[in-house]
Design a binder for these strands. Structure first.
Length: 316
DNA sequence: ATCCAGGTCCCAG
DNA sequence: CTGGGACATGGA
């Protein structure tokens, strides 16, 4: 456990003596898109929209404060969301046995890989393809504002990311109007597939499905989340707009598959920088990463990504 | 203005 | 199976 105790304060909880938890590292390492720094200068205070609530996180000394979270919510959701069941000192110790990874781990020492919600993560990373992080965040915010539930926090209005049912109301044209470009088609088709499977799963309880209806069942996202590594990776790629990299991100960031190893331009640069993995293509780098880091490959990837992007490392 | 961004799709060989 | 171009969008 990376904290000693949980205490209740007024409308917030406090985790005492927390190890391996730095808000800047966690929220700026590229794994999530709905968190923002609230005060300029303050790298330890962030606000995010998670699980239908607006919450804030800040670091005070060795303690982590979670504002607008009560004990019940912490135990039933946010503890897992922040991956607090995992001992990151142990993870880092293991990864640092590889001297080449040592520098990246030292740099992003406060990273934790969040356990986010699958549908939101799926749509978010479809949006991420060939896109810029500020634009990805903007697209997700606009989708939420148009289709998600309203949340009022401190007199200000925010919007939760829509459920599959809510987003299934959107047309492709409407989505395109939000500035997501050619990804509108992918988001539309994937949402329809996820929602279609949900409906069939529900219908299945009361009647027999037709052959045509049965073909929608493989798109059941909660079923896919239960699949083992390779089957999960493959199943995710049956959604429109989801290739190897996006599938790895969804598995890693929302399905607890820490052996997933997303390879994007930055991780590729990092692998070339540290391991001289020159010229090799993406699938080869992915396989190399998984062989090198095993069940912790995804976490290793996050240290590498953060290091490569923050340092803007270059390779010839 | 041209290039590029946490890639995917689609087609040719 | 592998390599290369097209694809919306907008900021640098």
């Amino acid at each position: 456990m990376d904290y000693k105790a949980v205490e209740i304060l007024e409308n917030e909880i406090r985790l005492r003596d927390v190890e391996s938890f730095h808000p800047k590292h966690i929220f700026e390492c590229g794994q999530c898109f709905r968190w923002n720094r609230i005060h300029e200068e303050d790298e330890t205070r962030f606000q995010g929209i998670v699980h239908g609530k607006v919450i804030r996180v800040h670091l005070r000394g060795q303690d982590v404060h979670l504002e607008n979270v009560n004990m019940e919510e912490f135990n039933s959701f946010y503890k897992e969301y922040f991956d607090l069941g995992r001992d990151y000192d142990k993870v880092k110790k293991e990864l640092r046995k590889d001297p080449l990874l040592n520098e990246a781990v030292k740099f992003g020492y406060g990273i934790r890989v969040l356990n986010q919600e699958p549908f939101e993560t799926l749509i978010s990373f479809i949006l991420s393809s060939n896109n810029l992080i500020p634009k990805i965040k903007e697209g997700i915010r606009k989708i939420s504002e148009k289709y998600g539930k309203e949340i009022v926090f401190h007199g200000e209005t925010f919007y939760a990311f829509p459920t599959p049912q809510e987003l299934s109301q959107a047309t492709e044209e409407e989505l395109r109007g939000l500035g997501v470009g050619y990804r509108a088609k992918y988001i539309y088709e994937t949402t329809q597939a996820v929602r279609g499977a949900e409906l069939m799963k529900e219908a299945e309880k009361t009647r027999a499905l037709t052959e045509e209806e049965k073909q929608l069942l493989p798109y059941d996202l909660s079923m896919i989340a239960q699949l083992p590594e390779e089957a999960c990776h493959k199943a995710l790629q049956s959604y429109s707009g989801v290739g190897a990299k996006v599938a790895d991100c969804v598995m890693l960031f929302s399905m607890k598959k820490k052996e997933a190893f997303p390879v994007d331009v930055w991780v590729k640069k990092a692998m070339m920088h540290f391991y001289g993995a020159e010229g090799t293509n993406l699938p080869k780098i992915r396989a190399f990463g998984q062989k090198q880091f095993g069940g912790l490959a995804g976490i290793a990837q996050q240290y590498l990504f953060y290091y490569a992007r923050e340092k803007k490392i270059r390779v010839e």
